[in-house]
Design a protein around this nucleic acid. Structure first.
Lengths: 212, 212
DNA sequence: CCCGGATCGGACGCAGTGTCCGACCGGGGG
DNA sequence: CCCCCGGTCGGACACTGCGTCCGATCCGGG
């Protein structure tokens, strides 16, 4: 596979490019009007291909949705990975992680909201769709757990069952994400990230009223 | 209208009863297989009425879903109101509130998960559906805010913008709910409630490792 | 020039929604 | 007693969207 596949490679590229184009259109429309209320005709038309061609790329509506989620997954993963190495302390990393997630939400709140939906919805197709989302959850959960472990051994965080800590932090992140994705006019990102991070670190404990 | 309307009142009762019956069936089926994957035929058949009769009670699928949410809303509201007056300190109330919400989830996790979905999904029908859910959110938010205010003035909670505190606490509750609703085998309720409450109160602050 | 893969566009069967209407049932009033 | 009437039934209807299929068309490479 070392460079002699120009034609085949090129076709692959073209194919991927058009695929991504359809996915991008679908994400936008799904975000705007929901996964059920957008006919395949419209996605195809908007993407500039025939409806039947869409079915060449994606076996069904569900698979298209899954591709949309996978795309978002990849983008989120990359954004967080890029930001991950830039901070030293667990607390700083936590805040960075939060801010990075919020930034991704702000990029495309409508579809993000929808992604949370897809994760939760039952049904046969949704099993696979949910799996796509669970991957994101697991990615983030691993980061969160590493972060907690580091803070715990250095005494910056209180000692508790790491799984439980991960769950609790994860819940806060999930809630923050879901709420922000649904808010028409969310708070400034940096500020919100700081608030959330501080809340995760100290909860409602008095004595932390300052801007520390 | 003072008591001479036995026939009419009776009819109302009968009507409401059958309505609730349809709603109950719909909740179960929606919870099991999602809102889109269960035909109206099946709901009607399972509820023991003709499909056309369902349309006498509910103008559309969306309205039926809204009725399901409204029923859940009512039940949740009542459960929490009952438990509300039983505790004195804000911390105790918080834990009680959490436990009560978890209990409601455990009653019907499938549909609860779905309710969170409905809240988030866009589309024309979903505006009204979302409003139904927003009501629950507002109910809870009001309670949370009262609770925070009380804790803040007595110095048990750190001082901060009440709206922001409410949002942060609400985020944790939302996340906890969503995660629990999706977990096939959730942790014991009382324990989970205690954990969540303690996390909201103290976050990851060291020095709170005990069972206090 | 011709070939072959990709795309187009339009038809098909199928399933589900929401509407409508005639038939039926059961109870209360004339 | 029968009739009337509100509620229910069941089935037909038009309509929309999904997923499949196939012949027609386009276009780049041999």
């Amino acid at each position: 596979m070392a460079g002699r596949r120009t034609p085949e490679g090129l076709k692959e590229v073209i194919r991927d490019y058009r695929r991504d184009q359809v996915v991008a259109v679908a994400r936008r429309l799904f975000g705007e009007r929901g996964t059920t209320d957008v006919p395949m005709d419209e996605i195809a038309q908007e993407a500039g291909v025939a409806r039947s061609t869409v079915y060449v790329y994606f076996a069904s509506r569900d698979e298209l949705l899954r591709a949309c989620l996978a795309q978002m997954h990849t983008q989120l993963r990359e954004a967080i990975a890029d930001a991950w190495a830039q901070d030293a302390t667990p607390a700083a990393r936590l805040e960075r992680l939060i801010e990075e997630m919020l930034a991704r939400i702000d990029d495309d709140p409508a579809f993000f909201r929808l992604a949370l939906v897809a994760q939760a919805s039952p049904g046969q197709g949704a099993v696979a769709v949910g799996a796509e989302l669970a991957l994101i959850g697991l990615d983030i959960a691993r980061l969160v757990r590493d972060l907690y472990d580091e803070g715990a051994v250095t005494g910056q965080f209180r000692a508790m069952d790491p799984d439980r800590a991960t769950t609790l932090i994860g819940q806060q992140l999930y809630g923050a994400i879901a709420v922000r994705a649904g808010e028409p006019d969310p708070a400034p990102r940096a500020e919100a990230a700081t608030d959330i991070a501080r809340f995760v670190l100290h909860g409602l404990s008095p004595g932390w009223a300052g801007t520390a």
